[in-house]
Design a protein around this nucleic acid. Sequence first.
DNA 1: TTTGGCATGTAATCCGTTACATGATTAG
DNA 2: CTAATCATGTAACGGATTACATGCCAAA
Lengths: 183, 183
Amino acid sequence: MRKRKSKTRYLIMGLLSEGPMSGYDIRRITLERFRFFWSESFGQIYPELRRLEQDGLIARLEEKDTPRHKKRFSLTEKGMEMLRQWLLSPAETEQMRFEVLLKCYFSYLAPKGTILNHVKDFRRRYTDVLNQLLVIERELQVAPDSFNNHWYVLATVRLGIKTYRAYLSWAEEILNEFKEDPR
Amino acid sequence: MRKRKSKTRYLIMGLLSEGPMSGYDIRRITLERFRFFWSESFGQIYPELRRLEQDGLIARLEEKDTPRHKKRFSLTEKGMEMLRQWLLSPAETEQMRFEVLLKCYFSYLAPKGTILNHVKDFRRRYTDVLNQLLVIERELQVAPDSFNNHWYVLATVRLGIKTYRAYLSWAEEILNEFKEDPR
DNA sequence: TTTGGCATGTAATCCGTTACATGATTAG
DNA sequence: CTAATCATGTAACGGATTACATGCCAAA
């Protein structure tokens, strides 16, 4: 038997633990809060919601007069159980795939200065996300801690901040070294 | 028409630019040198080699008395052309998927101290890879620069080193904060 | 002689994005 | 009225891992 590998269900159940929401909400919140270390598309979310409901891990709310087409789900006891189980097991090793580093590595085969474009592009992208993370950090520090989980949320945000600062510091170093000794 | 997304062919062509090698070699070298930011499996490499040969981007060496079953390939002019083209175009944005961060984020739902296991696990894994990277860095500094590309290789290695140092510093902070105020 | 590493390859399966289809509601 | 956004969903496709199959060669 093959081990289930997709983590989509845990993301969904995790979010539902904060209260009922729809597939569309899940997508939106994932973009807002997890963009820096996670991504999901509708093509995964909606079919997974159906499966989770079939398995009794989430339940459709019976609501009349929902705004628009909204179909909201809540986490069941069984679902919370499974979520807790997953939280106790160790995480899988992350597989990195940085195309930009592949390009940097082989840039010596291309015209002089090719690597600079990649490094500058990299720097620009991570300058943007770093700024977004700093905004989120400040917001978290002043917002009321309704779920008593801000310390946890801030932990993930701060890993992002440290990581992207390291990225930017690297980019500066490369650009400086190149300026001193262009290749 | 859909845009080809797999980057496997560029990894292969990049490696072949340093000299002829086999699918098995490519896999081994990828594990040694790119493990920190790239991964490929045999299931991608061998079919891709066949396609690249069909497209005339690489060519099978006609060798007798090769060691074992070895089938070596070399990069053609056309292949080098395409590789250079790719190097000039910007890299795609990398999508992150850190299961460990998802677990940290939701650990407040599990027994107190659950997050510690994830952070410690994370620290252990990256302590290992950091040490490997430091070894590689030292080796590169003393080895002869046969392809005149050490500065480029070191650039990628140093991004890894900076990143993993940031990871470890984060892990220490989280563990300390938790020790002072367990939740 | 048997074990383990070298070496190539295919098939099954799952994962994930993207494009497409449909329609309601709201803001301008 | 019209455009944008909200909202749900499916189908097609391509990407990637994993398991499997095969066999050689070297070392113990």
